[in-house]
Design a binder for these strands. Structure first.
Length: 576
DNA sequence: GCCGTTTTCGGCCCGACTGTTTTCAGTCG
């Protein structure tokens, strides 16, 4: 059983317990455990199998949950989960995902009106049976119907790159507001999560607080990209953008801006830890500041807020309550990799296969971006749809690269290839031609539906080849579109370490695999990560920033990312 | 359900907004 599967069981238990109205802290314990296991840099099964180690040493895992993990790993079922599933009708969990319906109200709907599914709920609202329930009314009924429609149509998150576009447009609109003194995005967008579920904006109004904040909200409400305002109070406005994405705006006093930014950036888990630490010191942190008794002692900036607890101002990408507090305690935080640290791009395509620009144009664009080397890695022949290269065409391409390098200044084009890992195992090109390449990435495009064993064996086989430099997009996922293929990434990483190979973090906004957790795992194993754009046109090179953001979330420093080195240094790292 | 040199019991982050309430519960982030 994989970490994700164990975590999913605990999350499901948390949902079910919540519906039953159990102690909320017990519910949280299951959610924390799910998060811990999902974020683990190695397989939980490996820890369980190691007699030297104990599952209960993991954060948030005690005796009870350790036993449950053992049961799950042993292939057993959890009697507790079976009981819960028997007791809680299938379908009520879906109801709890409708905005405004939590465990209490869903339980009331279930108990009083025998509502067990989204269909039941719609019918009950339409026949006005819901409004007669205690605690419900006509407005609740309508809100539920709206929520049902919305749940059917949306629910999905948007890519960080798309969110970035929306945020930039919103900020540019808001900067025209005369009543605005300051504005900043917060939430998962600011933390750089690969997908974003809603947008959070934080503002300070100029002038008198009360009328200022009303003016700021009015200005946002007039934004053309806004579909509807769903809630509005003195300091907070909630809305939905035309595309369906939710948006929250909070207006705070200037002296609270840092505290509010810290608070609304989250993550929730990070904030819970932070407030716990504050409490230990007799302090209270809320979105208005840090308080000792009734006295505010910090709040203008985030540095100030963290400073009251002798903590560094964590980069937002690290605020997930994983290792950051531990790191801060041990000394200075790692200096995370930055876009400017990157010296080269090691996965791009050209018109030789499915790229849209010549090698020369790609090289020029890379140079403009300040890169010093660029590996052309067109597809191998198995990818026939895009006219993938056989050995002879590949050598022709490399001859062109040799000629090009003679006249290029300031950038070196590397002779590379993206060789396919074949369905039956083995690589799509022979060793003799691979041996002539500067840089070889191996990747899986076909046979993605194979079993975990098959795919993992193929990947490990590729990493055993002496000419392969790195494995590209190691999970094959397409965010919001396609699940990763079944691959034992732990086994792949162990193989990469054993054979001295690198792993790619594909910077394309749809891919971004390795994900942050996998990046952290690679780091802990000492496997160099290569951030590459996989771009098919000059503008695609701009995707590097998305990859850097993901790497930062994984805690990677310049040292952990191979292509922050010069090409000669990188070659040395490869043992060539 | 977890956790702990102030604790093995009694804590576990904190406030805004809504709707249905006559003072607050539920939900959300």
């Amino acid at each position: 059983m994989t970490n994700a599967e164990v975590a999913a069981v605990f999350d499901q238990i948390a949902d079910l317990l919540e519906f039953r109205g159990e102690n909320p802290f017990r519910v949280r314990a299951y959610r924390n455990a799910a998060r811990t296991i999902r974020d683990l840099p190695e397989a939980v099964a490996q820890i369980a199998a190691d007699p030297q180690r104990k599952l209960s040493d993991l954060e948030g895992i005690g005796k009870d949950l350790a036993e449950k993990i053992d049961t799950l790993l042993g292939g057993g079922s959890l009697p507790m989960l079976d009981d819960l599933l028997r007791e809680v009708p299938e379908g009520v969990l879906a109801i709890m995902r409708i905005p405004g319906l939590g465990p209490k109200r869903v339980a009331a709907l279930h108990k009083e009106l025998h509502i067990n599914s989204l269909e039941d709920l719609r019918a009950a609202c339409q026949s006005h049976r819901v409004r007669d329930l205690h605690g419900f009314g006509a407005k609740s009924e309508q809100a539920i119907l709206d929520g049902l429609d919305f749940a059917a149509r949306a629910e999905e998150r948007v890519l960080w790159a798309e969110a970035d576009q929306l945020v930039q447009e919103l900020l540019s609109h808001m900067r025209g507001c005369p009543a605005l003194a300051e504005i900043a995005p917060a939430g998962s967008y600011r933390r750089g999560k690969e997908t974003v579920g809603d947008l959070d904006l934080l503002a300070v109004a100029a002038g008198a607080p009360a009328c200022g904040s009303a003016a700021v909200m009015d200005y946002l409400a007039a934004y053309a990209g806004l579909a509807e305002v769903t809630a509005r109070g003195q300091t907070k406005l909630s809305a939905r953008l035309v595309g369906g994405l939710g948006l929250d705006l909070r207006v705070v006093p200037a002296e609270s801006f840092g505290a509010a930014l810290q608070y609304f950036t989250g993550s929730k888990a990070h904030n819970i830890v932070l407030r716990g630490l504050a409490k230990d010191r007799g302090l209270k942190i809320n979105e208005y500041g840090v308080f000792r008794g009734a006295t505010r002692i910090a709040g203008r900036t985030e540095e100030e807020v963290y400073g009251t607890l002798d903590l560094p101002c964590f980069p937002p990408e690290l605020r997930e309550a994983r290792r950051e507090f531990e790191w801060a305690q041990a000394g200075p935080l790692p200096r995370l990799v930055e876009l400017a640290d990157l010296c080269g791009d090691l996965h791009v395509h050209s018109t030789w296969t499915d790229g849209l620009a010549s090698i020369a144009d790609m090289a020029e664009a890379a140079k403009q971006r300040g890169l010093r080397y660029l590996a052309i890695t067109d597809h191998s022949k198995r990818v026939s749809m895009v006219n993938g290269l056989d050995a002879s065409r590949l050598r022709e391409q490399w001859a062109e690269i040799d000629r090009l390098n003679k006249r290029l200044r300031g950038i070196t084009v590397l002779k590379g290839v993206e060789v396919d890992i074949l369905e039956r195992g083995g690589l799509d090109l022979d060793d003799d031609v691979l041996a002539e390449a500067d840089w070889v990435v191996a990747s899986i495009h076909y046979g993605q539906n194979q079993s975990r064993e098959q795919i993992t064996r193929r990947a490990i086989g590729a990493l055993q080849n002496p000419h392969v430099s790195a494995m590209a997009h190691p999970t094959g996922r397409m965010l919001t579109k396609r699940k990763p293929y079944e691959i034992d990434l732990d086994a792949v990483m162990r193989a990469a370490r054993q054979h001295g190979k690198m792993l790619e973090l594909n910077a394309h906004p749809l891919r971004l695999d390795l994900d942050d957790v996998a990046c952290a795992a690679a780091k802990s194993l000492g496997i160099p990560v290569v951030i590459s754009t996989d771009s098919h046109r000059p503008e695609g090179l701009a995707a590097m920033r998305y990859g850097v953001l993901q790497a930062r979330r994984g805690g990677l420093t310049k040292h952990d990312v191979a292509n922050t080195r010069t090409w000669p240094q990188l070659k040395k790292l490869l043992g060539r």
